[in-house]
């Protein structure tokens, strides 16, 4: 087990990316006994890398370490004040037992389209620091994913840090629709922010990756009037591509996203308000 980042990176390089990093294990260990083929792989245990554990507030950013857990952020009153959608997201990840082990970096690296942490981080313009033997590079979280479980992160790179800019946020909102009120994988997720940088609307479980919805953002930046959920249908159609799966249907996803979006925005955007039928 490596205890420094340097050691960890050299192991990764040596094994040519065949080593699987493991942080909280809350993705990798699910139904572990049945996944015996994976028992043979080599795991790179990150849990000893104390240097990457703590998160910190710098002048202009919140820096989340590779080992920072959801619970670490839940328990930070500063986060609740400044970036409540991070805390909101973290509180919906599984339950305490998962939050206390699961990491933000693992949430990103697992690349699930339903990742709640990614959802909020993307709406806050997070930047991911990737470290490899060849050095460190930074990738904007909204540019990290290429397709379902596909990322611009090589197997021999580690996520070492996530940097979230501290901005004045006029509005932020996180909505998760799951099949129950706790311990649920997201069926439709939305994180919305508004700052100097403009609107950010990010959707999860609506496309092969967590995804920014640029058409919707444009509508908001341009203050296009909307008088009901249906007003978002075209933009949703161009931004996302929901599917039927074991948890829900594409029809449900599309129509609930429109309704949630409408009602969240109607709270703050005067140009979005109910015409006739509001639901």
């Amino acid at each position: 087990m490596p205890t420094t980042l340097g050691e960890a990176l050299s192991v990764l390089e040596e094994l040519k990316g065949d080593a699987v990093p493991i942080a909280g294990g809350t993705d990798l260990m699910v139904s572990w006994p049945e996944r015996f083929i994976e028992h043979e792989r080599t795991y790179l245990d990150l849990s000893g890398l104390d240097e990457l554990r703590a998160h910190r507030w710098t002048e202009d950013a919140l820096e989340i370490g590779a080992l920072t857990t959801f619970w670490d952020i839940v328990r930070d009153p500063q986060a609740a004040r400044e970036m409540p959608i991070l805390v909101d997201a973290a509180r919906t990840v599984g339950a305490v037992q998962i939050q206390s082990r699961g990491t933000w970096a693992g949430n990103i690296a697992n690349a699930s389209p339903a990742a709640d942490g990614v959802l909020s981080m993307m709406a806050l313009d997070a930047v991911v620091e990737l470290a490899g033997a060849e050095g460190v590079e930074e990738v904007h979280l909204d540019e990290l994913y290429l397709g379902y479980k596909q990322m611009r992160k090589r197997a021999d790179q580690l996520i070492t840090r996530v940097r979230i800019p501290r901005r004045t946020l006029e509005f932020q909102s996180f909505v998760k629709v799951g099949s129950r009120r706790a311990q649920a994988i997201t069926k439709i997720g939305l994180a919305i922010t508004r700052s100097d940088a403009g609107w950010r609307v990010v959707a999860s479980s609506m496309a092969p990756t967590v995804k920014r919805c640029c058409a919707i953002e444009r509508m908001l930046d341009d203050r296009v009037p909307v008088d009901g959920p249906g007003g978002f249908a075209a933009a949703i159609g161009s931004d996302v591509s929901p599917i039927d799966d074991i948890r829900t249907t594409a029809v449900y996803r599309e129509s609930v996203m429109a309704r949630v979006l409408f009602h969240e925005l109607a709270r703050v955007c005067p140009w979005i308000c109910a015409g006739g039928d509001s639901v």
């Binding site: 493991i22 909280g24 294990g25 809350t26 260990m29 699910v30 572990w32 795991y43 245990d45 305490v96 037992q97 998962i98 206390s100 082990r101």
Partner: peptide
């Protein structure tokens, strides 16, 4: 609290 089924 952690789930011991997820801890290697």
């Amino acid at each position: 609290p952690v789930n011991s089924c997820l801890v290697p």
